[in-house]
Amino acid sequence: MTAPPVLSVRGLRKSFGAMTAVAGVDLDVEAGEIVCIIGPSGCGKSTFLRCINYLERPDEGTVRIAGDYIGREPAAAGGTRLQSARQLDRMRPRVGLVFQQFHLWPHLSALENVARAPIRLRGVDRSEAEAQARALLARFGLAAKAGRMPADLSGGEKQRVAIARALAMKPELMLFDEPTSALDPEVVGDVLRLMKELAEEGMTMVVVTHELGFARKVADRIVFFDAGRIAEMGPPDELIDRPRSERLRLFLSHFQ
């Protein structure tokens, strides 16, 4: 028996009032796979990521992390039922989410941003958690910044701390929502390089991005989202060089 996919999404739907943001998505991501999601603004990419860890509660569909349901699970009587808040809180650390706007905790130092969740949620000793956090920060070139408050960090540094914060919980899957869109052009490369290293180490990743160069180099598969659906999906060369749909061709033409 082969291991279940790290991420398995089935029939995911989410509407905001009359506006359908995610209109029925199925997606499997295998261990170590890197999937990049591209698509026009407003097509539901963020909503899709946020539905995976139930920051946004999907209207329909199921999500499994390495075979375990998150948020909603099959009910004994048939159909599905929502998990309890405690069940959901236990599942969430298995998925790391990196936001476009970082959302670091401004009242905590860089080190504490990284160490806090392992200490509180995993019961790791403070000294051990801090040592691990320092090691993570050092790996990301932030050894000298551990004691800084987020307000005293540059955008690129903030995003690297945010990635370290998510990794500190040892997630099985990392989700990135346009991680470089809020960064100055000169530091975008630093963050992308770090993500590439993560990918090479075998992390499973789903990355919403407008960085086609990164997607082409790093992704195993690219997903083109359009109007809340997966409109096209395939290996980078195929999808970028030989788009099948007119919509994708048009979308790609904006990057020339």
């Binding site: 860890n53 920051l55 808040a85 405690r86 809180d89 236990r90 969430r92 650390p93 998925v95 790391g96 989410l97 936001f99 706007q101 959302h103 670091l104 905790w105 969740a117 509180r120 949620l121 945010a162 914060r165 998510a166 919980m169």
Partner: peptide
């Protein structure tokens, strides 16, 4: 985003 990043990492409300 502060509440969201805290919940996403697994903190209870």
């Amino acid at each position: 985003g502060q509440m969201e990043s805290a919940r996403a990492i697994g903190m209870s409300y």
